[in-house]
Design a protein around this nucleic acid. Structure first.
Length: 506
DNA sequence: CGCTCGGGCTATAGAGCCCGAGCGGTGCCCTATT
């Protein structure tokens, strides 16, 4: 046991580090900026929990989801670490005030990027010594920051405001391109990169091609009777998640559904039941997964096309965290491409819209110096997500300042530049999708394709790899345990059983 | 882009077809408090 391990034992109670942890922690303790790409289940939490005990000042951990923060804080508490707190919308005003007041006694603060935009909170944090700035699930910066959650792109400013403390970015999946993006958007200087392979040897990958959607679904149900649970089935739409889970129940596979349109309570309930092995299958949109800390997921099925290889790897990575053999299968038919393409399209305003909003719409007010920025949104009824993105870029260019849209700064050249910028972003996303489609349709080894996308080479031997290399070996066939189908009970019958037991007994 | 849904038409009294409109995913935070 060396010095660092002794400290680990004293402070946390662990005897040794897992692969990669030591190097990452060492770099953090040397006060370097660090990017760590470490596979799911690799013990990311320790990489900031342990340093937070050793360095002066508080450690701020930026986290993308409320449930993730809750989970982290609870887990730390469960292991006896009471020095972690969180600030988010789940707290009442009084609670938030109290937490902010007592921050000096804490070593870790979990917070959302949006909350870090709050002036009062920034002011309070600025008055504290900040020892380490951590961004958990840092691929969100690249995946969400530029369009969907632009507060991710403001983290650089926040970090500078806090006196540029050393920064640690953690993620399980980052291509070299995403890694660059993270470094730039966090304003890191000469960061140390710790990159571990994204390969998950215990996950076999399978792609099933069908002629059309109907055939795809038939293939899916045929396949379903051969897989092990627990399993996640990803669908493109909320409606599909619901429909498929109903159909699965009729076929005797007990399944629930999950998507972002459900109430918070329902989502928590379903997730809880799945975590506790009360439901073997869950049909979900991509709302489900991040932060779902379940070790024994055996199967991840895609009934749609994720929009990039990263996204796919993130989602299949939820299988087999216990290291046991698991399977990921993607069912594909050519129609599946249209929806992700549409989603990419929908994120950005068209040239026509930009012209209408920023040139034609404002021509009326040319004599004024400025107008309220939100006038644009309200007048043209721009949807929330696109407005927030547009607003971010208008603020970045100084066209919106202190809630005011400055008339003299806007002209058609600017609008053309903005539109070219959006076009460029859109093209990039389309290329990511194209690359994935090529992988899905092609006859190259899937694992090799994925690894090369992440800048890795595939040099090792894998017993059973993917549907191209032939994972459906006899050995694997023998190992499978077919699942027990449940007797289908309609919700009407279930309700009757609960409310009128005497009826069902009769 | 491609599906689903609803309205309207036809041609006959209930149903079938066509066409256009609308929709499709991810999460923080919320008009403000200290």
């Amino acid at each position: 046991m060396d010095k660092l391990e002794r400290l680990l034992h004293d402070k946390i109670g662990f005897k040794s580090f897992r692969t990669g942890q030591r190097d990452i922690i060492q770099s953090v303790l040397e006060r370097k900026d660090v990017v760590a790409i470490i596979p799911t289940g690799g013990g990311k939490t320790l990489c900031y929990q342990f340093p937070s005990k050793l360095i002066d000042g508080i450690t701020i951990i930026v986290s993308p989801l409320l449930s993730l923060m809750e989970d982290q804080v609870h887990q730390l508490r469960a292991y006896g670490d009471k020095s972690a707190v969180q600030i988010n919308s789940l707290l009442s005003f009084e609670e938030r005030t109290r937490v902010l007041k007592e921050l000096t006694n804490q070593s870790m603060l979990f917070i959302s990027p949006e909350m870090l935009g709050n002036e009062y909170i920034k002011k309070r944090l600025k008055s504290l010594p900040v020892g380490l700035f951590v961004v958990d699930e840092a691929h969100c910066i690249s995946q969400w920051g530029h369009e969907f959650r632009t507060d991710y792109l403001r983290l650089k400013e926040v970090r500078a405001l806090l006196g540029s403390p050393p920064c640690l970015a953690l993620t399980a999946t980052a291509t070299p391109q995403v890694e660059k993006d993270i470094i730039m958007e966090l304003g890191m200087k000469n960061p140390t990169i710790h990159r571990f392979s994204v390969n998950r040897k215990n996950i076999r990958m399978n792609i099933n091609q069908a002629e059309n959607t109907k055939e795809k679904e038939e293939n899916f149900f045929e396949f379903l009777s051969t897989v092990e649970h627990p399993g996640i089935i990803y669908t493109a739409t909320r409606n599909d998640a619901l429909r498929l889970s109903e159909k699965m129940n009729v076929m005797g596979f007990n399944a629930a559904f999950y998507h972002g349109g459900m109430t918070k309570e329902d989502r928590i309930l379903v997730q809880y039941q799945f975590l506790n092995n009360e439901i073997p299958f869950i049909c979900a949109t991509n709302a489900f997964g991040m932060g779902v800390n379940k070790q024994n997921i055996r199967t991840v099925i895609h009934m749609h096309l994720p929009s990039s290889i990263e996204q796919y790897v993130q989602e299949i990575g939820r299988a087999g965290r216990d290291g046991m053999e698991s399977i990921a299968t993607l069912f594909f038919s050519k129609e599946d491409q249209t929806l992700p393409r549409r989603f990419i399209e929908m994120e950005y305003p068209t040239d026509k819209e930009l012209q209408l909003w920023l040139i034609d719409g404002l021509s009326f007010y040319r004599k004024e110096d400025s107008i309220q920025a939100n006038w644009l949104k309200d007048f043209f009824q721009i949807d929330d997500v696109r407005w927030r993105m547009l607003r971010y870029y208008l603020e970045k260019s100084g066209i919106i300042h202190a809630d005011l849209l400055l008339m003299n700064k806007i002209n058609s050249q600017y609008v053309n530049r903005l539109s070219a910028f959006f076009m460029n972003r859109k093209n990039k996303k389309e290329l990511c999708l194209d690359r994935f489609v090529k992988l899905v349709k092609g006859n190259q080894c899937i694992r090799q394709g994925i690894l090369s996308y992440f800048g890795e080479s595939y040099t090792f031997e894998q017993e059973a790899c993917c549907s191209v290399c032939g994972y459906l070996e006899e050995k694997w066939e023998k190992k499978k345990k077919p699942i027990q189908r449940m007797e289908y009970i309609s919700w009407q019958e279930q309700l009757q059983k609960m409310l009128l037991p005497q009826w069902t007994e009769r």
